[in-house]
């Protein structure tokens, strides 16, 4: 069986480095390669001893990751949400300014804006009671009752 890891260390290469390690001749870089090799899952049983020796360092490393990772994760999520809410708030407020656009020219003069707004409303105004009449028309109960009355009279 030939096992290869990301940095192309083969089993024979790992064996050679482990042997060198026991002889006390490995460099820091070589020890790092051994530990990376041993961190792999599904290694043959014969590496159990080396795994125990190097596992100490591995566990130590993992512990560090576990203690920091959730904090960073949730800080990141919280920061993301806050920034999005802030951006939305800024975006919406920027959009909600008062303005008038006359022939493509934008103005923020409040007097001009209100004059134009009232002018458009004036274009809508009509007879005094027109709106009230409109509301009355919405309520059709009376007219329905009147129509039904005709039939009740006819029956008698």
């Amino acid at each position: 069986m030939k096992i290869r890891i990301k940095n192309k260390i083969s089993v024979s290469e790992a064996d050679r480095l482990i042997e060198k390690y026991y002889e006390g001749l490995t460099s820091v870089k070589e020890e790092k390669r051994i530990s990376e090799f041993l961190l792999q899952e599904d290694l043959p049983e014969r590496y159990a001893v080396e795994k125990d020796i190097f596992g100490y360092f591995g566990q130590k490393k993992q512990k560090k990751v576990f203690s920091i990772s959730p904090f960073i994760r949730w800080t990141g999520v919280a920061a993301g949400i806050i920034s999005v809410v802030f951006c939305l708030h800024v975006l919406i407020n920027a959009h909600s300014t008062n303005y008038a656009c006359i022939d493509g020219v934008k103005t923020t003069n409040m007097t001009e804006i209100k004059t134009q707004a009232l002018a458009s409303l004036f274009g809508m105004s009509s007879k005094t009671n027109e709106v009230e009449e409109g509301f009355k028309n919405l309520d059709n109960h009376e007219s329905v009752e009147q129509q039904l009355k005709i039939f009740s009279v006819a029956e008698h």
Binding site: S96, T97, N98, Y99, A100, C101, I102, D103, G104, I113, K114, Q116, A117, L118, A119, S120, L121, G123
Partner: peptide, 27 residues
Amino acid sequence: NKKGSVMVELTDEMLEGYDFSLFKSIT
């Protein structure tokens, strides 16, 4: 934004004594 158009947008403003959350018109 076209020529011949007048567009107005008012947010949370009093107009003729009436309080609009949004008033938007185009002529």
